[in-house]
Design a protein around this nucleic acid. Structure first.
Lengths: 337, 337
DNA sequence: CTGAAAGCGCTTACAG
DNA sequence: CTGAAAGCGCTTACAG
């Protein structure tokens, strides 16, 4: 900037004013612009915000479990869309579900002066974020709620999604419905299982522990659990798979037992080729773009001065029928009721 | 920092030294740390690098076509892994293949002082980046090479991947092979088509224009093109789909014509449920983590002082046989040769 | 409208 | 080992 000022024959104040668009004599403006162009001048954003009154860095920090997880990368895109419309850029990083990593990333982002933090929480104690918030950083949680901290959050309607899926199975005549669940310490997994139980209760069906397998942490384990569950003495006529990897394991098990056209299946979360497998996979789909957009909007509401109580927003899910969820129970089972 | 110094009863110089780990008397160090802890002090990273000798901001800017594209989100993760091991954070943004957006993002990142830029190029003229590079920013291109700028790049071996896939089809006895290609102005699409022609030439097969459909920009268009191509008077016995969306269109067309078990199919790029569709989808898979890691390594090589000529690295692809690519031509066709 | 000066939060020679 | 002082690139009252 000094160089630009020298070349244009004006003071650095004037250059600063031109760069910031405050009124400056047209001739001077031209001289400054020419000089800047010639020297390839680019304002130092950090120095600028250091001195500025509002102290906004124009950046947000996103902490996901994994930036390459298809769900979170789409959330990221949702955030980006609303942030970019305000000239705000996004940092993104992966915690790999490690609470220490989450903290370190939050700290690293804070040191870099992000205006807001959007977090898919890994930790179980977010009180450490109080200080960042007092320092003016807007904090919003996505996909899972914060613990030990009152803060804005945007969640998918996990319980309701499962409830709707299972209700559909019940409508189609199923009463013995198997459930394949993820680790119950994970918020979304616990919520989904809760939805399952609610749906059974609403239909007046008693839960059969034999038909429920929880804490399935990858497709292999889910595959084994599904095989077991499908071969109990009084097997289910329908299955609910509560998550992507579990769904893959379940489909493998159904194939192996040649049951894919006889056993109804509904899965939580959509998948790329879901309409190309046989039968088409009926899913309860989340809306990750909406999760991201809304989270960003809550961040900017705070930055724009909203100081009300923490808001918890819930984004609805959608049931997408593709065939597997519409299979009726076999005739024998129908009569048996 | 001033406040910490006051509370600890030392000068700001001493606080700075403690924060930066230069040797300070143990007792003073303790007093400073306690004061910092008490005040919730967090160093201002921007102010720090502003004054520092090396001027490194500890951040990288990534410009993808779309952060939510599964390929790029995995590249992102690869970059993140090597960057994080050096304490470097990553900005990421989507250009949506718009050259202007690419430029604006590059500029926004530069203003924020990123140490390096990793770009999936949208534009056709990257000379505008000369200035950033002169300013010390390391620049590496991923997935597609730069234009009008000598710069490091990391590409997948597109041509070779297709060549290998088509060679496999030829080995299995196919001589009439259909090709479904994306818009030829896209570098990767052109490369893949080049690989297709090379494979045919190597096998002494003359290219039949009737069996080649290019510039397919979405699954609908690909679906239509595949249907057409499969119903010409002398139809192919095998198909090569050059990209994800095209593959989806091709599989739909094969299903529609009930040809999925009679027509061989190999696709470029792996997909989540590829082993669960019938028959399993044989693919030429890229290694996006490696693309990202290598790109980050090239960035850090430059930042570490490497000043040699631009390097073009190529990451090999892998053929994953799952059934669809291993279907032989029908007996009649085999005799016909 | 323009310029000289102070200062954002920090680091780093320079003395001591 | 420690402190006073200068200065990184910028913005912004304050005079003129």
């Amino acid at each position: 900037m000094k160089d630009v000022a020298a070349l244009a024959g004006v003071s650095v104040s004037t250059v600063s004013r031109v760069v910031n668009g405050t009124d400056v004599d047209a001739a001077l403006t031209r001289r400054v612009r020419d000089a800047a162009q010639l020297l390839g001048y680019r304002r130092d954003h950090a120095a600028s915000t250091l001195r500025r009154a509002d102290r906004q860095s124009g950046s947000l920090g996103l902490i996901f479990e994994d930036v390459s997880n298809p769900l979170f990368s789409v959330v990221h895109r949702g955030v980006e869309d609303v942030a970019r419309s305000r000239g705000v850029l996004t940092f993104a990083a992966s915690s790999d579900d490690d609470p220490d990593a989450e903290r370190q990333l939050a700290q690293a982002f804070s040191e870099r002066g992000v205006d807001g933090l959007i977090i898919v929480p890994a930790g179980h104690d977010h009180s450490y974020l109080m200080r960042e918030r007092e320092a003016g950083t807007a904090i919003v949680f996505v996909d899972r709620p914060p613990r030990l901290l009152e803060a804005d959050s945007v969640l998918a309607d996990n319980a309701d999604g499962v409830r709707g899926g299972v209700a559909r199975l019940v409508e189609n005549g199923h009463r013995r419905i198997g459930y394949l669940g993820d680790r119950q310490r994970i918020f979304t997994a616990a919520e989904r299982y809760r939805g399952f139980r609610q749906a059974l209760a609403a239909a007046g069906i008693e839960e059969d522990p034999e038909l429920v397998r929880l804490d399935l942490y990858d497709s292999e384990v889910a595959h084994d659990a599904a095989r077991e569950l499908l071969t109990v003495s009084d097997p289910p006529t329908a299955l609910f798979a509560s998550q992507n990897l579990i769904t893959i394991g379940a489909v493998h098990a159904l194939r192996e037992l040649a049951l894919e056209h006889r056993m109804a299946l509904i899965a939580f979360d959509d998948l790329t080729l879901a309409d190309l497998i046989e039968p088409g996979l009926t899913v309860v789909a989340q809306d990750p773009v909406a999760l991201g957009r809304r989270a960003a909007e809550l961040v900017f509401d705070r930055l724009d001065g909203y100081e009300g109580p923490a808001r918890s927003e819930v984004i609805p899910t959608t049931l997408i029928p593709r065939g597997s969820g519409e299979l009726p129970p076999p005739a024998g089972n129908r009569r048996a009721q």
